Structure formats: structure tokens, C-alpha cells
Amino acid sequence: KLLSSIEQACDICRLKKLKCSKEKPKCAKCLKNNWECRYSPKTKRSPLTRAHLTEVESRLERLE
């Protein structure tokens, strides 16, 4: 599967780190437990900047 097509777990399953069936409108866990089942939009991760990478590398060197 391509990364862009990976389905996201519902908010509660993601928060509780449960295996989500990803069914809509309610996944199996939410249906069974009568929880409100919501699927928040995916958040875009910002790409690493060179400055951040350099900072992490220098912190790693100090720890070694």
C-alpha cells in the first residue's frame, strides 16, 4: 500500500492505542462500548529543516 492511502484509526482508538477496525460511521470498538466515534483530519507533519537536523546532530555528539 502507498503511504498516502493508509487509513487512520478513529480518535479514541488512537488515543487509547487500540486496534481500530476503521469502519465508518462507527468502528467496532466504539460501537461495542457506545463511545462517540470521530475521525479527525490527518495532520500534516512539517518537513525537517536543516537547522533542526544540525541541532539534533550536535546534541547527539555531546551525549556520545
Rank of each mutant, 00 (worst) to 15 (best):
I6C: 13
L18D: 01
R59S: 05
R50Y: 07
T49F: 04
E7N: 11
K44L: 15
K19A: 05
Y39W: 06
C20V: 01
L63Y: 03
P25F: 03
E64H: 10
R50N: 00
E55M: 14
A51E: 05
P25H: 00
W35N: 11
T43I: 15
R14P: 06
V56P: 02
R38T: 15
E64Y: 12
N34A: 12
R62I: 14
I12P: 11
K29P: 05
E57S: 07
S4G: 08
T49E: 02
L2D: 15
I6Q: 13
E64N: 02
L15K: 10
E36P: 14
P25Q: 08
L63E: 04
R45G: 02
K19S: 05
A28K: 14
W35A: 15
T49M: 07
K24L: 14
E55T: 12
L60Y: 09
C13W: 06
R14T: 07
L31P: 05
R50M: 07
R50F: 02
L31G: 14
R62M: 12
E36Y: 06
I6G: 10
K24R: 14
H52F: 06
K32D: 05
E57C: 05
N33Q: 13
I12K: 10
Y39P: 00
D11H: 06
L48Y: 10
Q8T: 09
D11N: 03
K22H: 09
E7T: 10
E36C: 13
E55H: 10
C37P: 00
E36G: 11
L15Y: 15
C20S: 05
R14L: 05
E36T: 13
P41Q: 05
P47K: 07
W35Q: 14
Q8M: 09
L63K: 02
E36M: 10
L60T: 02
S4N: 10
C20T: 05
H52L: 03
S46R: 00
C30L: 00
R14H: 04
S4D: 13
E23N: 14
R38K: 12
L2N: 13
H52I: 04
R38F: 14
D11P: 02
H52S: 06
S40D: 02
L2G: 15
E23P: 07
S46P: 09
L2C: 13
L53Q: 03
K42R: 14
K32C: 07
A9F: 01
S58D: 12
C20N: 02
L18C: 11
N33L: 10
S58G: 14
K32L: 07
L63T: 01
C20W: 01
E57F: 06
T49G: 02
R62K: 11
E23R: 09
E7Q: 10
E7S: 10
Y39R: 05
E64A: 04
C27W: 01
S58L: 13
S5N: 10
L15E: 11
R59Y: 02
E7K: 08
A9G: 11
R59K: 11
Y39N: 04
P25C: 00
D11K: 01
K17C: 07
E23L: 08
E23T: 14
S5M: 11
L31I: 12
V56K: 04
V56D: 08
R45A: 04
I6V: 11
H52G: 01
T54S: 11
S4W: 09
L3N: 13
R14I: 03
A28F: 09
N33T: 07
S5P: 12
